[in-house]
């Protein structure tokens, strides 16, 4: 008799499974989880903390907050950040002071670990939400984060 009960039990479990998929089939219109990516660029919004790339925000006076302390460069596990610095005259005090010449960021080396942003004492760098990083030339992934002729915001000290 177990021969027949096996068959009926088997068919029952198969039908149970088909009911699950069948339910999804009928609700397929609203249940689809597909993101139609390039089309939904307009409404696609990344979370605030999303780690897309490291950026250095500048204010309207073209000023940033990077003092060139190089803590991020030391914290980086991969050598992603290179700071080329210089000594310049500080207008306020008239003393010689360290300032950044170029803040070089190699996106191609970056593992998005966030240690640089974590250690930055002046919050000069932060996460950008851009995630479309494909380029035709590898050199385009090496970026200088401080804008040309930008200077340090007054009042930012290390």
């Amino acid at each position: 008799m177990s021969y027949f009960s096996n068959i009926f039990y088997g068919i029952k479990t198969l039908l149970t499974g088909m009911r699950v998929t069948g339910k999804y089939f009928l609700n397929s219109r609203k249940g689809a989880i597909t993101q139609q990516y390039p089309d939904n660029r307009g409404i696609l919004k990344m979370f605030d903390r999303f780690r897309g790339e490291v950026i250095m925000p500048h204010d309207e006076n073209n000023e940033h907050a990077c003092t060139g302390c190089q803590k991020c460069e030391i914290a980086c596990p991969n050598g992603t950040i290179e700071i080329i610095w210089d000594r310049g005259l500080d207008e306020a005090t008239g003393k010689k002071k360290k300032k950044i010449d170029q803040f070089v960021y190699h996106l191609s080396l970056c593992t998005m670990c966030g240690l640089c942003i974590d250690v930055c004492p002046t919050d000069a760098i932060e996460w950008g939400q851009n995630f479309e990083n494909s380029v035709y030339d590898r050199t385009a992934l090496t970026r200088v984060l401080n804008k040309p002729d930008s200077k340090i915001r007054p009042g930012v000290e290390d």
């Binding site: 998929t21 999804y24 089939f25 397929s28 249940g31 689809a32 989880i33 597909t34 139609q36």
Partner: peptide, 10 residues
């Protein structure tokens, strides 16, 4: 298409 509808895809 049918496979997609079963699998919550488009």
């Amino acid at each position: 298409r049918v496979a997609a509808w079963f699998q919550l895809r488009i």
